[in-house]
Nucleic acid binder design. Structure first.
Lengths: 207, 207
DNA sequence: TAGATTGTTAATCGATTAACAATC
DNA sequence: TAGATTGTTAATCGATTAACAATC
């Protein structure tokens, strides 16, 4: 049942996982899957999948399940990944270089369109087909290219200032690789990637 | 109050975030902080921090707060990151190369000790001071180096098989960079890093 | 039709939060 | 001491799960 209440973040957060699994079912040439099929693959409950999807509409058929291609299309539309998103990358060090070369972004519709750094030694270098620009070009570039998404790959102690600049430039979604918690104003999303945090969540259980 | 009930995963999952914030307070030369100070920095509730910590002991003082250095030590001990952890890396492509060079691991006590790939073209190459080995050496190396932690950086369709090999070799904690959900037996932890999932969690809110 | 599976309800489960006695 | 802040309780809030009528 679709209401006008906002969908819980935790539900939205699972949709990309469903979408990723659907792509694999598609690669395996599955035409139709049940919520139980998907649940088995993801090691979660089938009721949770049905309930999550019910926030957005009725995409299945009783007795048959879900059409893999239809559900992929619907989830892509809901998540707004039925288009290409250009991204700004701030930080042209080793990590930034690895990020700009990561094929997984382009393969799923995300593309680094411009690269910035504040270090004069890095400005002017080429990152694939992009020239590293100074931070003073951020505002104009983001506006000119209509960019809403950015990746932060600077040291922890510079990250908050960079995020502030990005928000001021109109960026509304930020993927942060700096190992630090960062504040953003309402209306701006931020997600953090810190592999060490994930490792530390596991060492607790070792021994 | 410390009981013998297992601490919820969601609580354990927040400890690395607390630890990361503590290191920054330490860099700022803070001696003592209150749960409210930490909560403000992390944009969460102070009661949650106190309740989370109370699962493990009493680390604060009424009226004073927490000693930054003491709490850092305690959390490091709880998470078992008061030591160095050697890691096996599987996958010697671009992503594996970036991972092996990522300074953030070593800086926080995680070190890649051996690298494996199944591609004969990659075997024998050098990754910093390590030689890329064939998968047939996995079992012996992991045993010889007493490694319990591994990183998977292979294509999605190879990841499950690699994880099975790792588990068979005695690995008990796996950081997976392949964009796929993977099953592990009880007693083995797995965490996933897929930056595109994080981006897709944000595009939903755009426009 | 008979069998299967959805979408939804209601119950259960677990996590977060507010409040405050204890106490440094 | 007076002020501040912890550790803990109990209430609230929200998410997960089981169950099943609807129906393809």
């Amino acid at each position: 049942m679709v209401t006008n209440k906002p969908v819980p973040d935790i539900v939205v957060g699972r949709l990309p996982i469903y979408l990723r699994a659907l792509r694999r079912f598609q690669e395996e040439a599955c035409i139709t899957i049940s919520s139980a099929d998907l649940a088995r693959r993801l090691a979660i409950g089938s009721a949770q999948i049905r309930k999550d999807l019910s926030h957005f509409g009725e995409f299945g058929r009783q007795g048959r399940g879900y059409d893999v291609s239809r559900l992929t299309t619907e989830l892509s539309r809901i998540l707004k990944v039925d288009r290409e998103w250009g991204m700004a990358l701030v930080g042209a060090g080793d990590l930034g270089s690895a990020i700009s070369q990561y094929a997984g972004f382009r393969a799923r519709g995300f593309r680094v369109k411009c690269v910035f750094d504040k270090d004069p030694a890095k400005i002017g270098r080429r990152f694939a087909d992009l020239e590293v620009l100074g931070m003073e070009h951020l505002l104009a570039q983001v506006a000119a290219l209509s960019i809403r998404v950015a990746i932060v790959a600077v040291p922890a102690d510079e990250a908050q200032a960079v995020v502030n600049d990005l928000v001021a430039a109109g960026i509304r979604a930020i993927l942060n690789y700096a190992p630090i918690s960062i504040a953003v104003p309402p209306g701006v999303s931020i997600q953090h990637i810190d592999p060490v945090v994930h490792l530390q969540r596991m060492t607790y259980y070792l021994e």
